[in-house]
Nucleic acid binder design. Structure first.
Length: 391
DNA sequence: GGACGAGCAGAATCGAGAGG
DNA sequence: CCTCTCGATTCTGCTCGTCC
């Protein structure tokens, strides 16, 4: 886009470039005061609005006697004219992307370190850094995040100052008037994260603009969005996400996480295996009467027990590539610090099909392995087959 | 009895205004 | 820019009920 520039401004710009060259400061590609696309678009809309109104006035005015002595036509014209509507320019638009990429492990780690509020600021600053230069000025942050008219307004300036203090050294480094944003891998490393698990997900910017509860809820929900919908207990979720069970249920509602009841169908019922199963599963075991004959003959009696729920998050997965890259960066950072690797003693027990569950069972028969039965639309619960562990 | 949902009350935290 | 205050919002522990 080429625009004419006043000679004085052009001279001043040339002088600035010369001074920068003398000081050895690198100069970016400079576009001389061309109005931004958004501004010229707004101007164009306002002009169209004015043109339309002029046409309306001209159409109504035709046929009116233009006598300088008789001014009654003025009142008549005023009654026939449409009342002019005030042109209201649109609110400043959000940067082009309306979603941001969030790694569930990072989100839950922020929750665990009471950094959800500061984390929200971090992701919004990343969003504001449209050129990926790695920093945002404090002035920009203040204008975009605290101004009552700003589309990204989430708090007052005083609260922003507190949050900038909270995230200092972890989420960003403040250098006079700039906030240098820390990379995702470095944040994870600083917060003691071993590796990123689950798929990155796309979170709508809108989700970060509500109350802190909504933000926390979406951070929590990203954990479900980024993993398979395998059963997981509230207790395990508490361990993994640091969100108490009561709060998890609340977040389920806020972030619209879908939950699914799961039931495991075991062997045919007999007094002997009932005791055995009680011993293994505890008192959650109950009598399942198969009236429809889904497991074999109709009205067969089986032992069954309730498994933890499975959950489906509201966000779209983003793919594996960025996670692999970040895990490589994390591994590089970890090389500098000697530490053990706490591998799970149990490992995966829920599988998508019987074949993989059987293979897993053949490798390790010390734990039950489960795979889902084909879904029954009439039932609210998902039923699971299982292979029983051998002691 | 385990897992879950729901309601309630008190605690904790947040956010804004006032004043220095 | 900091501290204090206070109302609003959010979180959490407790209890009870339901389902299997």
């Amino acid at each position: 886009m080429t625009e004419s520039v006043s000679p004085a401004l052009a001279a001043a710009n040339a002088r600035l470039l010369m001074l920068r060259a003398e000081l050895g400061v690198q100069t970016r590609e400079y576009s001389p005061i061309a109005p931004s696309l958004a501004v010229s678009e707004e101007l164009h809309q306002a002009q169209e609005h004015l043109t339309t109104y002029r046409q309306q006035v001209a159409a109504v005015g035709q046929g009116c006697p233009l006598s300088p002595t008789d001014t009654s036509w003025v009142q008549e014209l005023a009654q026939r004219l449409p009342s002019p509507t005030i042109y209201e320019p649109p609110l400043p638009a959000l940067p082009a992307a309306e979603t941001l990429i969030l790694h569930p492990t990072l989100a839950t780690t922020l929750l665990g370190h009471e950094l959800a509020a500061a984390g929200r600021i971090y992701f919004l600053l990343r969003h504001l850094d449209t050129t990926n230069q790695g920093w945002v000025t404090v002035e920009t942050a203040r204008a975009q995040l605290t101004d009552p008219n700003a589309p990204l307004r989430v708090c007052g300036w005083r609260r922003l100052r507190q949050l900038l203090k909270d995230g200092e050294g972890v989420l960003w480094q403040r250098d006079n008037d700039r906030l240098w944003l820390t990379g995702a891998a470095k944040i994870a490393h600083k917060l003691g994260c071993q590796r990123l698990t689950g798929q990155a997900v796309e979170i709508p910017i809108k989700a970060l603009l509500g109350g802190i509860q909504q933000v926390r809820a979406h951070f929590y929900a990203s954990f479900h969005s980024g993993r398979e919908a395998a059963p997981i207990s509230r207790q395990t979720l508490h361990t993994v996400t640091s969100v108490p069970e009561r709060t998890q249920r609340l977040y389920d509602d806020v972030a619209q996480i879908k939950s699914q009841t799961n039931l495991a169908i075991g062997e045919k019922h007999s007094p002997f295996n009932q005791e055995e199963r009680y011993w293994q599963q505890g008192s959650g075991v109950f009598h399942f009467l198969d009236t429809n004959g889904q497991q074999g003959a109709a009205n067969g009696e089986y032992l069954a027990w309730q498994l933890p729920n499975s959950y489906q998050g509201p966000h779209q997965p983003h793919g594996q590539r960025s996670r692999k890259r970040l895990n490589q960066q994390l591994a590089d950072l970890r090389k500098k610090v000697a530490e053990g690797n706490d591998k799970s003693k149990i490992g995966r027990v829920f599988w998508s099909d019987g074949a993989t569950a059987t293979r897993a069972f053949s490798r390790n028969a010390t734990h039950d392995q489960y795979w889902p039965q084909s879904a029954d639309a009439s039932s609210s619960a998902q039923l699971w087959f299982n292979l029983t562990r051998r002691e």
